[in-house]
C-alpha cells in the first residue's frame, strides 16, 4: 500500500482570470506504515496536495498512485473504484468537528461505514470499537456530539473517518485550536494508530510535532516540494530558507555539538530523550 505522486500539477480555475497553479511537478513516494509530516506555510499547496490522496481533486496533469488506484485525468469516471479509494485513504479536514451532524456520537461515527453499504447494526459495532481507538469510553456513544468539548468533538470526527478502516490516515492540522494538553493527547493517539500499522500523513505548522513524531518530512513552498528528508536531516541544515523555524531541541543539540558534546542525534526525539542523552553522555 504505497503512495506515489508522479509529476503532479494542479491548477485552480484554469483559463479564467482567477487561474492559480497550486501544485507544480510534485514527485514523491510514501512507504506503508510510515509517519509523514507535510509542512510549509499557509497557501503553499499542502491542502491541495492531500485532496489528491483520496480523489477529491484530480491532477490537472500527472498521476497519483495509491495502491492499485491511479488518480489521473483519464480515470476520473471510475466511480466504483473511487469509492474503494475513499475507504482506503481517510481524510480528516482542519477543524473536523464541523462535519458532525448526527444526534448521537454513535450515529455520527456509524454514518461513514453505512455509506459504504455496511448494515446499521454492524456500523454501530464499528462505532463502538472506533471510539476506543480515539481514546473515548463507551459512555460517549449516546451523547450528542454538540455537547462535547472541543477536543472531544475533534476525536469523534476523527473516529468518523477511522470507522471506514482506512489504511492511510491523512490529518490536516488536527491540533489547531487545541490547548497544550489536548494537543499532546491527540498526538499520542495518532502515534498509537501509526504503531498499529496505519500510514499517517499529517499536515502541520508545528515543527516540534515534526521533530518528535515524523519518520519523514515533506517540505512545500509555493506549490512545489522543496525538500524530502528525515527530521534530523532536515533540521541539521538551516531551515529558514524554507520559512521554517528550527525546533528548540535542535538548537540545543546544535549548541552542544558546537561545544564539543557528542550527542547521538538518532536517539533524540523530544525534550525527555534529549535530557536523557545529555545525562548519558555527560556521565561517561
Amino acid at each position: 500500500m504505497s503512495i506515489k505522486f508522479n509529476q503532479v500539477y494542479y491548477t485552480y480555475s484554469p483559463k479564467t482570470p482567477f487561474e492559480n497553479e497550486a501544485l507544480k511537478n510534485i514527485n514523491f513516494e510514501i512507504k506503508e506504515g510510515s509517519f509523514t509530516c507535510l509542512v510549509g506555510h499557509t497557501g503553499c499547496g499542502k491542502s491541495t496536495l492531500i485532496q489528491h490522496l483520496n480523489g477529491l481533486l484530480v491532477p490537472s496533469s500527472g498521476e497519483v498512485v495509491v495502491d492499485d488506484y491511479v488518480n489521473t485525468k483519464k480515470n476520473r469516471k471510475m466511480r466504483r473504484k473511487l469509492r474503494d479509494l475513499r475507504k482506503k485513504v481517510g481524510l480528516v479536514f482542519q477543524f473536523s468537528e464541523n462535519q458532525l451532524f448526527e444526534e448521537t456520537v454513535e450515529d455520527d461515527i456509524a454514518f461513514g461505514p453505512q455509506n459504504f453499504g455496511v448494515k446499521k447494526e454492524d456500523a454501530k459495532l464499528i462505532a463502538k470499537e472506533t471510539l476506543k481507538l480515539v481514546g473515548l469510553d463507551e459512555s460517549f456513544l449516546k451523547k450528542s456530539p454538540f455537547d462535547l468539548s472541543g477536543g472531544e468533538k475533534r476525536r469523534v470526527a476523527i473516529a468518523g473517518v477511522l470507522a471506514l478502516k482506512p489504511d492511510v490516515l491523512v490529518l490536516d492540522e488536527p491540533t489547531a485550536g487545541l490547548d497544550p494538553k489536548g494537543t499532546k493527547e491527540l498526538l499520542a493517539m495518532v502515534k498509537n494508530l501509526n504503531d498499529s500499522g496505519k500510514t499517517i500523513i499529517l499536515v502541520t505548522h508545528d515543527i516540534n510535532i515534526v521533530y518528535e513524531y515524523a519518520d519523514n518530512v515533506i517540505v512545500m513552498d509555493n506549490g512545489e516540494v522543496v525538500k524530502i528528508a528525515t527530521p534530523s536531516e532536515l533540521f541539521s541544515e538551516n531551515v529558514e530558507k524554507y520559512s521554517l523555524e528550527t525546533p528548540m531541541i535542535q538548537k540545543v543539540t546544535n549548541m552542544c555539538f558546537a561545544k564539543g558534546l557528542k550527542l547521538d542525534i538518532n536517539k533524540i526525539k523530544n525534550l525527555e530523550s534529549l535530557v536523557d542523552e545529555i545525562a548519558k553522555v555527560r556521565s561517561k
Partner: peptide, 16 residues
C-alpha cells in the same frame, strides 16, 4: 468556502 469544505469532508466519509 465552508460549503465546499464540509462537502469534501463528507465525501471523504463516503457521501456521494
Amino acid at each position: 468556502t465552508e460549503v465546499e469544505r464540509i462537502m469534501k469532508a463528507q465525501s471523504s466519509r463516503g457521501v456521494d
